[in-house]
């Protein structure tokens, strides 16, 4: 539980701005709102599907602020050519959900 979150503070503040710009309802974004943002990355849809599965930790079909940051973090990693992990690394889990 003392493992630092992979999402750095500067990343988080950048992703929070995007999150807020998408007009979250009850601090949550539906798949309909997140999908076009992730599609903008030009990554293959199967990769984006895996990123969604990793990010929607409670599997409720919505991303909260921390889950959205995980999704964006993985998108940027994939864009840099890094593999999407097949299992949730401890460092990827937001501290609020450990």
């Amino acid at each position: 539980t003392n493992i630092p979150w992979d999402v750095t503070l500067s990343e988080k503040s950048k992703y929070d701005k995007v999150f807020d710009s998408l007009q979250p309802v009850n601090n949550m974004l539906s798949g309909d709102k997140v999908k076009p943002v992730l599609m903008n990355s030009q990554l293959p849809v199967d990769i984006l599907g895996r990123i969604w599965d990793m990010s929607d930790i409670d599997k409720d079909g919505y991303l909260d602020r921390d889950e959205f940051a995980v999704a964006m973090h993985l998108v940027y990693q994939a864009r840099e050519g890094q593999d999407i992990p097949s299992i949730m690394r401890p460092g990827l889990v937001p501290p609020s959900k450990r």
């Binding site: 798949g31 929607d56 599997k59 409720d60 079909g61 919505y62």
Partner: peptide, 13 residues
């Protein structure tokens, strides 16, 4: 929150 009607929670499937 209402779950999506498709049954899948993944919008990319």
């Amino acid at each position: 929150q209402v779950p999506p009607p498709s049954g899948s929670t993944n919008p990319f499937l």
